[in-house]
C-alpha cells in the first residue's frame, strides 16, 4: 500500500516576462488501487502538476510538499522519483535519436529493478507487453518516439507503465490524439497495470470519454491552479453536460 500526498503545492515557471505562478496550492492524496481523474480546461495547470511531481527542471517549487510513503519527493532527482515508484506517462513523449526502444526499455528496467533482467524472460516480457497493446514487433527496433504516430507514442508510454511497474502513475492526457480503438487498447493497458500491481492512478484529461474505459474513484475539477471541486464519478457526468464554464468564471 502506497500513498502519494500533495500538500499546498505551489509552483511557478520562468518565462521571458519573469516567474509566473501556475499552481496555487494543490492538495491531493492518492492511494494504491485508487484512480483519481483531474479534469479542467486548457491552461488550468494540470500538466504543470504532472511535470512538477516528476521533477521537470522547468518548474520551480514555491511552496508545499509532495511525499510518497512519507519520503520527500521534491528532494529527489528525477530518476530517484522513478525509483521510488512514480511514473509519468507524457502527453508529448520525447524523441531520442539513435536509441532503440528495446535498448531504452532494458536500460530503464535495469535501473528500476536494480539489476539487468534475465535476457530470456525479458524478451518474453516485452513481447507479451507489445502484443497486449497490439504493437508490431518491429517497434522494438525503432528509435524511441522517432517518427511515431500519436497513437504509437501513447501505446509506448503505457507499455512502459506495464513493464516498469510503478506504485503511482500520472497519466497526462494519455487520451489525446487517440482514435476509439486505440483509446480502448491503451485503457485496457492501464486497467491491467491497476489490476496486476495495485497501481494508484492520477488521470489528467479534458474529456470524459476515457472515463468510460478507466473508471475513476474520485473526480477533481482543476481551474486556475488549484482544485475547485471534488466528487465521485458522477461529477464527470455533470462536467460532460455543463462544461467548465462555471469554474473558470469563479
Amino acid at each position: 500500500m502506497s500513498t502519494l500526498e500533495i500538500r499546498n503545492l505551489q509552483v511557478s515557471v520562468n518565462t521571458d516576462a519573469g516567474a509566473v505562478d501556475i499552481l496555487k496550492g494543490v492538495d491531493l492524496t492518492i492511494n494504491s488501487g485508487e484512480t483519481h481523474a483531474i479534469m479542467g480546461p486548457n491552461g488550468s495547470g494540470k500538466s504543470t502538476l504532472a511535470y512538477s511531481i516528476a521533477g521537470h527542471p522547468k518548474y520551480t517549487i514555491v511552496g508545499g510538499t509532495v511525499t510518497l510513503d512519507g519520503a520527500d519527493v521534491l528532494e529527489m532527482t528525477v530518476d530517484e522519483r522513478a525509483k521510488a515508484g512514480l511514473f509519468l506517462a507524457m502527453q508529448y513523449p520525447v524523441e531520442v535519436p539513435g536509441v532503440s526502444v528495446s535498448n531504452f526499455l532494458r536500460t530503464a528496467a535495469t535501473a528500476l529493478r536494480g539489476e539487468a533482467p534475465k535476457l530470456r524472460t525479458w524478451v518474453a516480457e516485452v513481447k507479451d507487453a507489445m502484443e497486449a497493446l497490439n504493437m508490431d514487433p518491429a517497434f522494438a527496433t525503432r528509435n524511441v518516439n522517432e517518427g511515431f504516430s500519436g497513437g504509437e507514442k501513447k501505446r509506448h508510454e503505457i507499455m512502459q507503465l506495464e513493464l516498469l511497474r510503478p506504485k503511482i502513475a500520472i497519466l497526462d492526457e494519455t487520451d489525446s490524439g487517440l482514435d476509439v480503438d486505440a483509446l480502448r487498447i491503451v485503457s485496457e493497458g492501464v486497467n491491467r497495470a491497476k489490476e496486476n500491481n495495485n497501481l494508484g492512478v492520477l488521470l489528467i484529461t479534458h474529456y470524459t470519454r476515457i472515463l468510460k474505459y478507466i473508471k475513476p474513484d474520485f473526480v477533481h475539477v482543476f481551474a486556475n491552479g488549484h482544485i475547485v471541486e471534488e466528487g465521485g464519478p458522477d461529477l464527470a457526468d455533470k462536467l460532460e453536460a455543463n462544461g467548465y464554464a462555471d469554474y473558470v468564471t469563479k
Binding site: 516528476a54 521533477g55 521537470h56 527542471p57 532527482t77 528525477v78 530518476d79 522519483r81 522513478a82 525509483k83 511514473f87 509519468l88 507524457m90 513523449p93 520525447v94 524523441e95 531520442v96 536509441v99 535498448n103 531504452f104 536500460t107 530503464a108 535501473a111 528500476l112 524511441v144 512502459q160 516498469l164
Partner: peptide, 19 residues
C-alpha cells in the same frame, strides 16, 4: 531528452551516455 530518460529511472550519467 535527459528528463524523459531519467523519468524512467535512468541516472543522469547513463542518460547522457545513451544520448
Amino acid at each position: 531528452q535527459l528528463f524523459y530518460l531519467m523519468s524512467r529511472g535512468i541516472t543522469l550519467e547513463n542518460a547522457r551516455r545513451l544520448v
